[in-house]
Design a protein around this nucleic acid. Structure first.
Length: 772
DNA sequence: CAGTGAGCGAGCTTCCGCTTGACTT
């Protein structure tokens, strides 16, 4: 709904967001009407290229169907207004929105008032209204260049993929780099060779005190193998230990800056396990309720008002020594800073009412904002160096003492790494030269671990570092690359391995321990198609998916803004070589779908086992001889053409297999286009739920699934309810709950009604209402 | 939907960035 006051006033202000329109409307009062454009009102056609390649890349803009209504409303308001201010956001896109508004509303570009709000306060808004500027056409040109470039890349590259790889695929300046990051991370993990080493940790206590005072210290060197570790412990066994040095250094820890879109996504992901889109949905609803500032921002800036309120609030809650007003500046590449950082609208509200996720996200934003205005924490870091009498290296103990907690009282940013921190280690009061006794010294076997795969927020973080994508596109980009099948978001359970520990107390004992490792939750894995598309783009369009491509074109957009170059000239310079590469890829390269990896030889038949992409996706194949047909099997989820082993491949041919008997017929397990299935009784099929593995399912489980499906079918075919007075109306069970069926047509039951209790009258009403 | 691994060949798919609703068989 657009915010239009009942009586249109002669002063019209147009902003982008309806929520913002509402707030500003309150500040401006009855004399002003504040409308919102709800983002862009015009765009290139969705179906065609929409760019005139023969005339300076002139864009052909249209008003999309879903924007027709809003444009009509804006036209109406503009007709009645005497004064119009265009108050879209202060960035490239906002400037373009203002320009499109002049074009659609027939306003003169040179004289139409253009304003921006830096703060949503009465004085800031009135000041802006009184000091309007005009539209910066260079900035608009830079936006057109950005739009045209993205369209040219997307709409010329994608069709190449349709011809060379598979229909309906897509490529673009942002999404293709996101996929590349994920593919390269996977390759890094594939080529990773784990190494083992030994880490030595001792528990010491001062001579003459009790062993319960023992503190941890780590040996300064890592050892390569068990023999070395054993030799060291043997030496230390009869050694004396002297404190050779103690140093206490006061250190300061500063709070993190207030949230941007990307840092909010990261912290909500780490602390609550929220996906990027969950975070954004929740933030959107907080914004619409007026509880937080705008949630799509790359700025860490807080308004003076917010800084002052934070100061008051901190003084009141914790005392003046906890307050430390700070201004933060944005460093991230390509930031446009049209908004404030994400913060609570009213810092006096520590908590809010709302859904569980709204409450916890709000509380996180509140804490982070407050902490950003609090004093640094002061921590004394003590380092104790311990020298053994018969070894050249030393042991090092590190302990942190919080002298003043400062912002830590409220908030601590979580980290992505799993490394142990040195916090909360209490070191005893000891002096240089003092003797220590060891309680135990343990050498444990460790494995180096490969880089961890991206999850949604860490991918966003990486993209932001590279300056690729914008706060409004981070979440949609992830959705796109998953939807195209380039990437899977899944979890991997932990694996177990045995590790060796050498424990020295009086004697040296060798122990075997179980260690779990490699568990990954909600990580982004590349698929075969993602890998193939990426490799194709890398060979033929390496400049487009270069990590610096966006940064380079951004520099050129800046040149457009500064008037150094015309926008169509910049596009022209890009387009000719790009288009040549496209033509070249289409004409000279042969079809790419037969990239075959020979895995090995099938020991039974002696024939080659190969992996490739088939009509229905990745598969393995055992070639036939002469008349003999080849055998095929689809790859399981998570298996890649690049890495599948011969053993894994041969296992895939175990299907279809006869599992047992049911009602005198064979029960066969197979795997088809739509996943695993059970076949029995000749033609009765039952799909396996995704949680069942067709390779390990038991006959009992299969039978119970068959019976469950029979029951469900019966239930579905039977109407849930019917009415003797009118047999034409029935209430049935459907995929989305109950629905009403009448004369071959189906009708939805409104949310406030229950199918179990509907009367015939109510059903008829629903039917007649929906016909309107 | 149908439980396979082509060859009659229509007509379609696709980008990035602004912003919010619409609404299932």
């Amino acid at each position: 709904m657009t915010y239009i006051q009942p009586t249109m006033s002669k002063n019209l202000v147009i902003v982008e967001s309806p929520t913002k329109a509402k707030t500003i409307g309150k500040f401006l009062g009855n004399e002003y009407t504040v409308c919102s454009s709800k983002g862009h009102i015009r765009d290139l056609s969705k179906k065609e290229l929409g760019i005139n390649l023969n005339n300076k890349y002139e864009p052909e803009y249209i008003i999309p169907a879903e924007k027709k209504k809003i444009v009509a409303e804006l036209k109406e308001a503009a007709k009645k207004a005497e004064n119009i201010w265009l108050a879209s956001d202060e960035d490239r896109e906002g400037e373009a929105i203002a320009w499109h508004l002049t074009q659609v509303l027939n306003l003169p570009v040179e004289t139409t008032k253009r304003i921006v709000f830096h703060e949503i306060t009465s004085s800031a808004i009135h000041e802006a209204i009184e000091n309007p500027k005009t539209i910066n056409c260079h900035l608009v040109d830079a936006q057109q260049a950005r739009r045209v470039l993205d369209r040219l890349v997307g709409f010329e590259l994608s069709p190449v993929l349709w011809r060379k790889v598979r229909p309906s695929l897509s490529a673009g300046r942002v999404q293709s780099v996101a996929v590349r990051l994920i593919v390269e991370k996977e390759r890094e993990i594939i080529s990773f060779k784990p190494k083992t080493y030994y880490r030595v940790i001792a528990l010491f206590y001062p001579k003459g005190t009790s062993a319960s005072n023992a503190f941890k210290a780590e040996y300064s060197k890592r050892l390569e193998n068990k023999e070395d570790a054993y030799a060291l412990l043997e030496r230390l066994r009869n050694s004396n230990f002297i404190v050779s040095d103690i140093e206490t250094k006061p250190t300061k820890r500063n709070p993190a800056p207030p949230f941007t879109t990307s840092t909010l996504q990261q912290d909500a992901g780490r602390k609550f396990g929220m996906s990027v889109s969950q975070t954004m949905q929740t933030a959107q609803s907080l914004y619409e309720k007026g509880l937080i500032t705008y949630m799509r921002t790359d700025s860490v800036n807080l308004s003076s008002l917010a800084i002052n309120t934070a100061k008051e609030q901190i003084n009141k809650m914790f005392g003046e020594q906890y307050s430390s007003p700070r201004r933060y500046t944005t460093h991230s590449k390509g930031a446009q800073e049209a908004h404030e950082a994400i913060r609570p609208s009213y810092l006096s509200n520590e908590t809010i009412t709302g859904s569980a996720s709204e409450q916890k996200l709000y509380s996180l934003i509140w804490k982070r904002t407050m902490a950003s205005q609090m004093a640094a924490a002061q921590i004394d870091r003590t380092t104790i160096i311990i020298k053994p009498s018969n070894d050249d290296n030393c042991f090092i103990a590190v302990g942190d003492t919080v002298v003043f907690d400062g912002f830590l009282k409220l908030y601590q940013e979580s980290t992505d790494s799993t490394e142990e921190s040195s916090e909360d280690v209490v070191l005893p009061k000891i002096n240089t030269g003092e003797s220590l006794i060891y309680k135990e010294i343990v050498a444990s076997e460790k494995h180096t671990s490969p880089a961890s795969r991206y999850n949604e927020p860490t991918l966003v973080k990486k993209l932001e570092e590279l300056g690729i994508g914008r706060p409004s596109t981070f979440a949609p980009t992830i959705t796109t690359i998953i939807k195209r099948g380039y990437v899977d978001k899944t979890s991997k359970p932990a694996q177990k391995r045995k590790i060796t520990e050498l424990v020295l107390t009086k004697e040296i004992q060798e122990k075997q321990k179980d260690e779990s490792y490699g568990a990954e939750k909600n990580r982004l894995f590349p698929t075969d198609i993602g890998i193939i598309v990426n490799d194709y783009l890398e060979t033929h369009f390496c400049n487009i998916i270069d990590y610096n491509f966006t940064a380079q074109v951004e520099e050129q957009f800046d040149d457009i803004v500064n008037g150094k170059i015309k926008w169509y000239k910049m596009i022209d310079d890009f387009y000719h070589p790009f288009h040549n590469a496209v033509e070249n890829a289409i004409n000279t390269q042969e079809k790419r779908d037969q990239q075959v990896r020979v895995i090995g030889i099938d020991p039974k038949s002696g024939h080659e086992v190969k992996a490739r992409i088939g009509k229905y996706g990745p598969m393995v194949e055992i070639s036939g001889e002469g008349e003999e047909k080849p055998k095929f099997a689809a790859l399981k989820k998570g298996q890649l053409i690049e890495t599948i082993t011969l053993e894994e491949a041969l296992n895939l041919f175990a299907l279809p297999r006869v599992l047992g008997e049911f009602e005198g017929n064979d029960v066969v397990i197979g795997i088809g286009r739509y996943g695993g299935y059970i076949r029995h009784n000749n033609k009765e099929f039952t799909s396996l739920p995704k949680t069942e593995d067709p390779y390990t399912i038991t006959i009992d489980k299969a039978i119970s699934l068959i019976e469950a499906q029979r029951q469900a079918k019966q239930k579905a075919s039977m109407p849930a309810r019917s009415f003797p007075e009118d047999p034409s109306i029935e209430i049935k069970h459907g995929r989305y709950g109950m629905y009403i069926a009448c004369n071959g047509k189906n009708y939805r039951i409104p949310k406030d009604k229950k199918g179990e209790s509907l009367t015939l009258e109510e059903c008829r009403k629903i039917i007649t209402n929906s016909k309107k």
